[in-house]
Every structure is written in C-alpha cells, then in structure tokens.
Amino acid sequence: MRAVIFVAVLAVVGAGEARAQDAAAGEKVFAVCKACHQIGETAKNAVGPVLNGVIGRKAGSVAGYTYSAANKDSGITWDEATFREYIKDPKAKVPGTKMIYAGLKDEQKTNDLVAFLKQFDTDGKKK
C-alpha cells in the first residue's frame, strides 16, 4: 500500500513540474510571434509592436506603433491573466484588433510564452 501511495505522490509532483513555466520552451513558442513582433535590446516595431516589457504595460502605448482604435481604447493593462485571455483568442478579447493571430490554445505553451516574455524589461534587457 505504501508503494502505491508513494508512486501516486510522485506522479502528482511530476505533473506539477510539467506545468511550470519554462522560458527556454517559451522562446520556441515565440518563434511564431516573430513573424510580427520583436523582443530584446535591438527590437523595433514591425507588423506588430515591440513586446519588451509587455507584462505590466498599458495596451496601445508603444511609441511609434500605429494601433487599432480597439486596442488603444481597450483600457487594458497587460498582466498575466489578461495576456493569457488575449493570446488564446485575440479577436474575442479585443474585437477590432489588427492582430490576425488565430490564438494559442495550449495552456503549457502559454505558460512558457509568458515566462519568456517576462524576462524582458521595457528596454529589452533580460531581468
């Protein structure tokens, strides 16, 4: 009986670790985002705005990027929960957004992407 309980506890602990945020895995998820967004010290606005310091930033506030009125007027400040909702289905969260991404439905990939993005401050330096 003890062996069964021990194995069950290990399975639960292992499952919890599998759900942890992994910035290195998030960098791989970000490869899709690179089609429109840049991040890091040399990042520039492209099809989408720079994502340096995105967690904690007010939506529609990157200088030099032309946002949709929907995004600019959304009143959103990107915290983790709001970003997760948005990245899952951008057009549902901000109807009228210019972002043409269908959405990231995989929770683990979202966790990893958030971990990757959180590494960068507003200047694009890793924290």
Rank of each mutant, 00 (worst) to 15 (best):
A70M: 02
E80L: 05
A92T: 12
K118P: 01
K105V: 08
V47I: 15
A18M: 15
G48K: 04
R57G: 07
I87H: 04
G64Y: 05
V4I: 13
H37S: 11
V7E: 08
G48F: 01
A20C: 14
Q38V: 06
G96S: 02
A43S: 14
I100H: 00
F83G: 02
T66Q: 05
K118H: 04
V13L: 15
A15Q: 12
Q108F: 00
V13F: 08
K72F: 12
A3K: 14
G53F: 06
R2V: 15
V50Y: 06
G53C: 09
Y101H: 10
T77Y: 07
G14T: 07
V50D: 00
G75R: 05
L117Q: 04
Y67K: 00
T97Q: 08
Y86H: 10
L113N: 05
Y67N: 02
P95W: 10
D79C: 04
V62H: 00
A59W: 09
M99E: 04
V29W: 09
G124E: 06
V54G: 03
T122Q: 13
Q21A: 15
T97Y: 01
A23P: 06
G124V: 03
P95F: 12
G103L: 08
T77F: 02
G75Y: 07
L10C: 15
R84H: 02
K28E: 12
E80R: 12
P49L: 03
I55L: 13
K91W: 04
D79E: 10
N71Q: 02
S68A: 13
T66K: 08
K109T: 05
I5P: 09
V12M: 11
G48Q: 06
P90S: 04
V32P: 00
T77H: 01
A35W: 06
G103F: 08
K118F: 00
I87T: 05
G75P: 00
F120P: 10
G40T: 05
N71W: 00
E107L: 13
A70G: 03
F83D: 01
D22G: 05
G14P: 10
A70H: 07
S61F: 00
A35R: 15
D112K: 11
V50W: 02
Q38P: 04
M99G: 05
V114I: 15
G124M: 11
V50L: 06
A8F: 13
G124L: 13
I76V: 12
C36Q: 10
D89F: 06
E107N: 12
M99Q: 05
V47K: 11
V29R: 13
Y65Q: 09
A46M: 15
P49Y: 03
R19N: 08
A24W: 10
V94L: 02
T77A: 04
E85W: 03
V114K: 02
K98Y: 02
Y67R: 00
S68N: 00
D106W: 07
V32L: 13
Q38R: 14
